[in-house]
Amino acid sequence: MIWFILLFIVIFGGSLTLMIRQRTEKREIVLVTTLLLLGFADWMSVFLNHKFKSSKVIALLIDLVGL
């Protein structure tokens, strides 16, 4: 897990600096950051043994709607 976090921080920092240096649009930076953080959160959920199961969420929603 430690390695993953370290790797993530390196990638995250690296991509942010690269993006800023390339003068990418603000919108894009925000979107990419959000996506990266989402991915990070999901990976952390895997590491912390609370897997986020997207299919379970969909199944729950469908059951709720009652199709």
Partner: peptide, 21 residues
């Protein structure tokens, strides 16, 4: 957004994480 590069890279992390679900 006009370039796909960063979005694509960022999605790898998300998809590979969700695939473990």
């Amino acid at each position: 957004i006009s370039s796909r590069f960063w979005v694509t890279i960022a999605l790898i992390l998300l998809i590979s994480g969700l695939a473990l679900g």
